[in-house]
């Protein structure tokens, strides 16, 4: 098989694709293939990784035109066409690069973020949206005597969203992020929603309203790419839909009063 890898760094006039031939062993991941390139073919190849176990969210990249974690994406199922995901279209996945999906695995940096070097992108904008939602818990009861009690069913609902590892896959898969640089994006909105439904949180309504804008809850076009690519099964689209319902409900209640 061949790994076709996007290359770009300071001083290069335009990006190029390098191709590396290797044997795909059973269970071998894209991350492992990148290590192999670094050790045996080209030690200048740059990519991010850390935990190798799909919990740190460092190694998200565009693999066969789908944002995925390199550490949990195996080569053989890709070549066998088993892991195809059909995404709602946007410019970065419709680019002109050609590859043979039976022989090649195409590896590119996450779209919608500037490339620093090869597969490493500058995540500043992604994290800025996350910080903008003010992800700091403001408890209803500032100083409980012992534990802040929670119901198991509340915990289960929160877990849907606390599972987020901020890898940026959803941001890179979102057609709205592709065209609207001000759109908060799925990860930030899902994290905001996590605070809106936390029964211990003191500013739930206020938080809901912070994204009651065209670039917040209302920017989403329900392409559902976010939910499809999330390596942890987080459904930002559900959070956004429920937040909109909640806002509509509150507006209606406001009118009736």
């Amino acid at each position: 098989m061949r790994l076709k890898v996007f290359r770009h760094r300071q001083g290069m006039s335009e990006p190029r694709y390098d191709t590396f031939e290797m044997e795909a062993a059973p269970g071998m991941t894209v991350l492992s293939a990148l290590f192999k390139i670094q050790e045996e073919f080209d030690d200048s190849l740059a990519f991010r990784y850390s935990c190798r176990g799909a919990v740190c969210g460092s190694c998200a990249m565009l693999i066969n035109k789908v944002p995925r974690l390199a550490c949990r994406t195996q080569l053989m199922p890709l070549l066998a066409g088993e892991q195809e995901i059909s995404l709602s279209g946007y410019p970065a996945i419709g680019g002109p690069v050609s590859w043979d999906p039976k022989e090649d695995v195409l590896v590119e940096p996450l779209p919608h973020l500037p490339v620093i070097c090869d597969l490493v992108v500058d995540m500043t904008r992604f994290f800025a949206f996350y910080r903008d939602i003010d992800p700091v818990f403001s408890p209803l009861d500032p100083d409980p005597e012992k534990e802040r009690l929670m119901d198991p069913s509340d915990v289960r609902e929160l877990e849907l969203y606390t599972n987020c590892i901020l890898c940026g896959a959803c941001f890179a898969a979102c057609p709205v992020d592709a065209k609207n640089p001000r759109f908060s994006g799925p990860a930030a909105l899902a994290s905001l929603y996590r605070f809106c439904i936390d029964p211990r949180e003191g500013r739930r309504i206020e938080r809901l309203k912070t994204a009651d804008t065209p670039d917040g809850w209302w920017g989403c076009e329900f392409h559902a790419n976010c939910r499809q690519v999330c390596p942890r099964g987080v459904p930002p689209i559900v959070a956004i839909g429920q937040a909109r319902q909640e806002i509509k409900k509150q507006r209606k209640e406001g009118e009736e009063m």
């Binding site: 818990f137 012992k146 534990e147 009690l149 929670m150 936390d198 949180e201």
Partner: peptide
């Protein structure tokens, strides 16, 4: 207790502990 106070979501028992 600090972590819980800062919003950490740990698993709870049926008695909400």
């Amino acid at each position: 207790a600090d972590l819980l106070c800062w919003g950490a979501v740990f698993d709870v028992t049926g008695e909400c502990q």
